[in-house]
């Protein structure tokens, strides 16, 4: 494992912890898209079907379990927690996320490494992760104001993407048979979706002002 991959995993983990902390500390999930969180939980569950069949390292297995548990915990809080669920912006979070799921499933049935249950779901999870942020970005766009923690959450998610791309470049240069088409193309799509958000995040940081997205 190289330093970029590790930095990517850590920023990914931090983004999830920032979100959990925000929900726990403020007892509010205002500004957070439940649909994006449900998609991420689905991404982790379908990608880590190999948890019991292919052992890679203790680090990998532990992180997989942590990602499944933390993403499920966020969804649970937003749907079921007595106080937290009251602050959910249901009226603003109207993205048709089922279409994303169906589209990714069809794509995974067409483009995959091998036509097996695990491989198809692995490809599905990669495609779904690429677009899972869309409901969140639409929600931020609609609400206009972005509170600091939500901004940081998306910032760390974006940082995770950037580090993973560096990781793939590094692996491509150092490993002889590194194949990455499905991951890399999906990863580039995913990172491109953040570019717009990052631009406004940078502007607000430079001006030391509150993050505002144009409507």
């Amino acid at each position: 494992m190289n330093i970029f991959r590790f930095a990517g995993d850590m920023t990914h983990l931090i983004s999830i912890l920032v979100l959990l902390l925000k929900i726990y500390a403020t007892k509010s999930c205002a500004g957070i898209s439940l649909k994006t969180q449900e998609l991420y939980a689905l991404v982790f569950v379908t990608r880590y079907l190999d948890l019991f069949t292919d052992f890679i390292s203790v680090y990998n297995s532990v992180m997989k379990v942590v990602f499944i548990l933390t993403s499920s915990a966020i969804v649970w809080c937003m749907r079921r927690h007595r106080i937290v669920k009251r602050s959910y912006d249901q009226a603003l979070d109207t993205f048709r996320h089922l279409f994303l799921v169906l589209g990714c499933l069809v794509l995974a049935l067409i483009v995959h490494d091998k036509f097996t249950f695990q491989e198809v779901f692995w490809a599905f999870s990669i495609y779904l992760e690429a677009v899972a942020i869309l409901p969140q970005l639409v929600l931020l766009q609609r609400s206009g104001n972005v509170d600091n923690l939500t901004g940081q959450y998306v910032f760390f998610l974006g940082a995770y993407r950037a580090f993973y791309i560096l990781n793939w470049i590094y692996r491509y240069l150092t490993e002889q048979h590194f194949r990455l088409w499905i991951s890399c193309i999906s990863g580039l799509v995913q990172t491109a979706l953040y570019a717009d958000f990052f631009y406004y995040y940078y502007i607000s940081w430079k001006n030391n002002s509150k993050l505002q997205l144009p409507s």
């Binding site: 995993d9 890679i56 990998n60 992180m63 993973y164 990781n167 793939w168 002889q176 890399c184």
Partner: peptide, 10 residues
């Protein structure tokens, strides 16, 4: 198990 692809990533 997957030394040549990105399936050893998270």
């Amino acid at each position: 198990a997957f030394p040549s692809s990105s399936k050893d990533e998270l």
